[in-house]
Structures are given as structure tokens and as C-alpha cells.
Design a protein around this nucleic acid. Structure first.
Length: 531
RNA sequence: GGGCUCGUAGCUCAGUCAGGCAGAGCGUCUGGCUUUUAACCAGACGGCCUAGGGUUCAAAUCCCUACGAGCCCGCCA
């Protein structure tokens, strides 16, 4: 099988065949909590952008927040009484639900931009309301108003729907009621750059083309392509049907604005676990912030990058997440990764993205040993010999792991170090006692031990003549030759003493994560326990 | 009703654009390592490539049809 080219590089090649200068754009409406499908859009765009850069293209990456869109309805998470009056107004002109932000749109935009930062995605951010107010769309608005009938014909022909008599590609914002979907255009003045309107609230007036209103979506999109020079843009499959907004956009940008449509990248939705497609109506929703709570950012990137955009992605935050993380880490440290694997890893990393070499699984042990206390986590990580120069990354990983344990981990992944000797110590056998007391003495005598040291030490009990073997024999008052040691029993004794359960995480990692003095004390205590 | 996308091992998916011996990881099983486990090493099992037809010396791949899954088609992204 020939080397496989990653889809991002395939796209880059296709796009490069059209020219070397590119603008990758992505746009999302901050009308509510920005969800996981939107995350796929920006990661997809970011990867396409990076593939272009890697191939030497002169590329830029922008994100446009559609802050000038009207509020469609009072969403369930909004207060009916106070938001009913704002339906129809541009999002940027509506008060923030929590009162902390400048506007409604900023309320949802801000956490999303934070998530982008988190994922190492750094587009130039534009807000649609600012673009309109700055006059970026003025030329397109004029052309759209002049060629209104042509646009209507295109919409009619491609989407099969007849625009209303009073339809206009430009929707003025009423100066009286502030709404954008209740006005009817009565006329316009190209020189003054103004539009006259009547509003259903009874008001009429004149607005500026620069911020006084906005183009309707199906015209706004192609206008944006033209005004900003967009050449590559991913969008959800909801826009991809025949007669959908991409189709009409292609025709409008060509016939009305005299420009080209961007190279399309259609992407599928992300499905959640076994519950099917994510949808707000069925209640199957994972917000980006929930997702980022448990998945390290580069793993989330990997999840999206490994799958071609047009295939759906199944995301299951329970045990399959652990498999995904493992797969990523294995690939990451693999010596014989294919060029395709390497490319995926490369694209999963990103400028400014946190990366530590601490495996997620190991952190689940460390985190639980430390009971989530970050100073203790850091100490253990240091002792285990990991690089601790990037404390911020370690903190992020620890938070992911902590959230995962709390929200999604299966029971067999969980344990807690008992403050007091567990009552289960009553089940400890004489042989296990002999081991625990001997082990405890050895710990007192030795210096700091690594995970491997602990591991080897426990197994040394099997070797005749080893210090531990001799000590156990003495404690049992038998001849060393007749001592039968099954390491399984020893591990069990350790888990019982510390966790109060018969099994636990890999002993080496586990023991080296705990204080040696604590272990010595606890083992001695367990050995002495006689109910 | 119209449209878009997908269907390949028990699971998650590569491979389809450019036709040339059916692939990977995970899981399962076997063996190994003084190695407990959610570890590591070696190997095995595992497929009518959703079904049917067509083109071809040759089809998972191209064409047509059917079936299944998800979604879009209310100008509200």
C-alpha cells in the first residue's frame, strides 16, 4: 500500500492548484453555548491552514463571529420575561445574560475564544457587527440592493422557493425597536450609503449601510467571501444540500459580486457515545467546555484530525476515551510510525499547545494518590522523573484527569488511599504479615525508591538468598529453602493495607507515588493488626 | 417527496479521488517475560468489503439499483 496522504494535505494540494495565496475562513454564530460541532469546524480549518503553510503557501486564517445575527427566539436557557423583547435584535446589541460581558454575543464568544486558545488555534478574529460598522460590506450591500431581482431569481431557481414581494437582501435595523427582522426596505441612496425602511412596529426611517443593518444570510456569506477574499472554508453538512446556502452562495458570488466561491470542506457531526448524533432537541449535547474538561487538547485535536471531515466521529468519554488517549500516546512515542502517523501527530500538536510526556493513565494513579492536591501531584511527578518545567501543562492534565475520574471513569479505575488502616486488614494472612513487616523494615533502611525499585524489591522476595526472602523466612520461623513465595499474595497485601481493596493500579507507579515513610508505617500497622 | 454524506474484522476506522493479492489499532485467544494490572514482547483467530446488477484481463475502489444509518431541505446557520 502506497503512503497515504493525510486529508489536510490532499486539500492543501487541491487548493494550491488554484493559487498560492489563501485565506482560510471559519464562522460561527454565538447565539448560544457553542457546541462540539463548531469545534470540529475550527480544528478542520486550522489543520487545512497549517497544511497550506507547510506547503509554502501564503495563507491566513480568520474566524468570523456572526455577532450581527438576530436572536431567533428565547432559548430555553434564557429568561423568558427579560429576553422576549430582544428577539429579532442583533446579538451584539442585546444585553449579556450574566451581566459580566459587553453583550449577549460576547457572553458566548468569550469562552469559545478561550477554548480556541486552549486548542492552539489562533485565527485572526473578526466580529460581524464591527465589520458592518466599519463599512467592509458597503460595496456588497450596494450591489446586492441594485441586483436584488437577480439575487431573488438565483434563490428561486436553486432553492426552489420564491422570495416574498417585499424581500430584500439587506435588512435594516429599526431605530425604534432595535429589530432587524421586522423591517421592509422602501428605497436606498447609493451616494449617501443609506437605506430607507418601514418597520412593523410603526416606525420608519433611514439607516446607514455601514452598521445600520445586515445582509440576509444567503447573501451575507458570499458577500463575505468577496469582501474578505475567502478561498477555503469548512462548513457543516447542513449547508451542503443541493439548493442550500453554499449552492446559492456560489451562484451569488459569481453572478452578483464577480468573484469565486471558496474551496469547500464539508464536515459531518460528532456523535456522542452510543446516544447518537448531538442535537439540542434530543438533549444529547456535550458543550465544548465539558469536552475540554476531560480531554487533553492535543487528544481532542487528534480525535478530529484522524477522521476525514465527511465521516462522522463517535466520541465516548468513558473508557473509549482512555483507548483514544493511549493510541495517541503510543503513536507519539512510536519509533516506527509511518509518515502518515507522524503527520497526524504533527497536526495534533500546535503552536502554544500544552504537552507533557506524562501518560494520562499514570496521571489517574498520581491524581488519586494525591487526592487531587496539586502540590502533592507535582511532588510525585517530580519524584517519578518527569519534566516539571511546564507546570501549567501538568496542571491542565491533572484537571482533565480529575474531571474524567469524577464524570466518566468506570469504578475499576478508581481508588482512594485510606487515611486509616482499612478494616479489610483483618483478612491478612500470617505470610502476608511476615512480608509486610519485612518490607517495612527494608523501606526504613533504604533511600528514595523509583517505581522500578519497588517493583524489583517485591519480586526479590521470590529469590532465595535475597534480603527480603531471608527476612520473610525469619519472620515465618521457617528455613529459607522451604519458603514458598507467591508475589500475587504480596501485591494483594499491599493493596489491602493502603486501599482497602484486593487489587489496584500497577504497583511500581503506585508505590513510588506515595511517601515512603507513610508506606513503612502503614505496612507495620497492617502487620500488627489483630482484630 | 427532493437532496447530501456514510456503510470494510466483535469495536473504532484506514484503503475508494488515480481499479492490480483485503489493512491498522483496540478487543479476544495462545505463548513468553521473577510482572499483580488497565503493562510489555511474540503469534493466532477474526471479512460474501451492506445486497444485487453493469463496465473491465482485473472492482472494496468506476457506473446503475436496492437496503440500512445520520443529516439537510421551514430562507432561522
Amino acid at each position: 500500500m502506497a503512503d497515504i496522504t493525510h486529508w489536510a494535505d490532499v486539500i492543501a494540494d487541491e487548493v494550491l492548484a488554484k493559487g498560492t495565496k489563501h485565506l482560510v475562513a471559519t464562522g460561527i454564530t454565538p447565539s448560544g453555548h457553542i457546541h462540539i460541532g463548531n469545534m470540529r469546524e475550527v480544528v478542520t480549518a486550522d489543520v487545512a491552514y497549517r497544511a497550506l503553510i507547510d506547503k509554502g503557501a501564503e495563507a491566513e486564517f480568520i474566524y468570523i463571529a456572526d455577532t450581527y445575527d438576530p436572536l431567533r427566539k428565547v432559548y430555553p436557557f434564557l429568561d423568558e420575561a427579560s429576553y422576549a423583547q430582544h428577539v429579532g435584535k442583533p446579538l451584539s446589541e442585546i444585553p449579556c445574560p450574566c451581566g459580566e460581558h459587553k453583550s449577549y454575543s460576547e457572553h458566548f464568544l468569550e469562552p469559545f475564544l478561550g477554548a480556541l486558545e486552549h486548542l492552539g488555534i489562533h485565527p485572526k478574529v473578526y466580529r460581524a457587527d464591527e465589520l458592518y460598522k466599519e463599512g467592509v460590506y458597503a460595496e456588497a450591500i450596494k450591489q446586492a440592493l441594485v441586483k436584488k431581482d437577480e439575487i431573488a431569481a438565483i434563490l428561486q431557481k436553486l432553492s426552489g422557493k420564491t422570495p416574498a414581494e417585499t424581500w430584500s437582501p439587506f435588512n435594516p435595523i429599526c431605530s425604534e425597536c432595535g429589530k432587524i427582522n421586522t423591517t421592509i426596505v422602501k428605497g436606498f441612496d447609493l451616494d449617501a450609503e443609506t437605506v430607507d425602511y418601514d418597520c412593523s412596529c410603526g416606525n420608519s426611517g433611514t439607516v446607514s449601510m455601514n452598521g445600520g443593518g445586515k445582509l440576509t444570510w444567503r447573501v451575507d456569506w458570499p458577500a463575505r467571501w468577496k469582501a474578505l477574499g475567502v478561498t477555503v472554508e469548512p462548513y457543516g453538512k447542513d449547508h451542503a444540500s443541493r439548493g442550500g446556502s453554499y449552492d446559492t452562495g456560489v451562484a451569488i458570488v459569481k453572478d452578483i459580486f464577480g468573484s469565486e466561491a471558496p474551496h469547500p470542506i464539508v464536515y459531518e457531526w460528532i456523535m456522542l457515545g452510543k446516544q447518537g448524533a448531538m442535537s439540542s432537541s434530543t438533549g444529547v449535547v456535550v458543550s465544548i467546555s465539558d469536552m475540554l474538561k476531560v480531554v487533553p487538547p492535543e487528544v481532542l485535536r487528534y480525535l478530529i484530525i484522524r477522521t476525514k471531515p465527511e465521516k462522522h466521529i463517535r466520541f465516548d468519554p468513558a473508557l473509549p476515551l482512555l483507548t483514544l488517549v493511549d493510541e495517541f500516546e503510543r503513536l507519539h512515542s512510536s519509533d516506527n510510525a509511518t509518515s502518515y502517523d507522524k503527520r497526524m501527530i504533527e497536526l495534533s500538536h500546535a503552536a502554544g499547545l500544552c504537552h507533557t510526556d506524562i501518560p494520562f493513565k499514570h496521571m489517574t494513579t498520581i491524581y488519586q494518590v494525591a487526592a487531587g492536591d496539586f502540590d502533592r501531584i507535582l511532588n510525585i511527578v517530580k519524584r517519578a522523573g518527569y519534566d516539571t518545567s511546564n507546570e501549567k501543562c501538568i496542571r491542565e492534565l491533572a484537571e482533565n484527569v480529575g474531571n474524567w475520574l469524577e464524570m466518566y471513569a468506570p469504578d475499576n479505575a478508581k481508588f482512594s488511599v485510606q487515611e486509616e488502616l482499612p478494616v479489610m486488614a483483618a483478612t491478612i494472612t500470617d505470610f502476608q504479615r511476615a512480608f509486610l513487616i519485612s518490607f517495612s523494615d527494608l523501606l526504613d533502611k533504604s533511600g528514595e525508591l523509583t517505581g522500578e525499585d519497588y517493583h524489583n524489591l517485591v519480586y526479590s522476595s521470590k529469590e532465595p538468598g535475597s534480603e527480603l526472602n531471608t527476612m520473610i523466612a525469619n519472620a515465618m520461623e521457617v528455613a529459607p529453602e522451604s519458603l514458598q513465595v507467591d508475589p500475587k499474595e504480596l501485591f494483594k497485601a499491599i493493596y489491602i493495607s493502603v486501599l482497602g481493596q484486593a487489587s489496584g493500579p500497577k504497583a511500581g507507579w503506585f508505590l513510588s507515588s506515595l511517601e515512603k515513610d507513610f508506606l513503612a508505617r502503614r505496612f507495620r500497622e497492617a502487620a500488627a493488626y489483630r482484630p
